[in-house]
Amino acid sequence: MVLAIAGCLLLVYLCTVLGAASISLGEVNRILLHEIFHLPVSLEGIPSGSIAIIRDVRLPRVILGFLTGASLAVCGASYQGIFQNPMADPYILGISSGAALGAALGIVLHFSGGFAGLSGTTFLAFAGALLTVFLVYAISRAGRRVPISSLLLSGIAVNQSLSAFLSLMMLFNQQSMDQILFWTMGSLNGKGWNQILIILPYAAVGIFLLLTSARELDIMLMGEETAVQLGVQVERVKKKVMVVSSIVTAAVVSATGIIGFVGLLVPHVVRLFTGPRHRVLMPVSLVFGGTFLILCDTVARSAITQEIPVGIITAACGGPFFLYLLRKSRRGGEGR
């Protein structure tokens, strides 16, 4: 565990060092020490462009990547817990398509009314995401209970219809099509300290709240009835996890676009190593999810001269890697 965290920190550092503009190792170190830790290290002889690249581009991007990956992974683990379904991911309640529709609206309307430091597109994406979850939740509610099966089904249905709207919107606004498409593929490109400040409070509070539910989530995997009989306030836990995860995911998605696979995959991969107990699963997913996304983003910005949306990388790397692990563990005779 400690080793894993140390490894991750090393990776974060390496990813800061790597990049299109070649800046020497020593220079990066000096910049980091001076700018971040405010140590009396002389920056003499380093071009100010390099300082700016490290301080305002690469470092925030790495931090944002970590936050995004960590949030998505923890939310994914929580969703898989309350839905007792291995196919659940943070977008299962329609957040992604709601956010995409909101973002597309912002792009098409050139919505520029910034709000509390948010760009119009970000704001609309956030609103769209939350509205969608609320809609799905309202549809599937039966009295005071929210049955899992109807949540999953209405989530899928709403997802589909919103995707249709999105396609329609792109069809009628072909000049914005590239931009919308690019947004939906998710990217950390051009994002910086602003986005971090948006996500950080949600992510920090949200992840903390989710971690406090670890014990309940374990028991929920025994089935809802058993959970009630063991003393869990099942409906309350479900509501809490759903509301918190939705807000965190909405914040992340509105800032970075739809980055797929991290929330679905990371918890599964981690589970193969740590077992299903959420008290271990969630913190490890947090670290591993963050690192995984940074890694993918580094590939995204350095593989070829053109930026590749990081969502493509996560799906392209994550899928086969996961299949490999799954096959290996099956052969070993282990459970999930």
Binding site: Q84, P86, D218, L221, M222, G223, E225, T226, R271, G275, P276, R277, E334, G335, R336
Partner: peptide, 10 residues
């Protein structure tokens, strides 16, 4: 209960 299986490796 009657019996149940758990999909996860507890």
């Amino acid at each position: 209960p009657q019996s149940y299986s758990v999909d996860y490796a507890f």
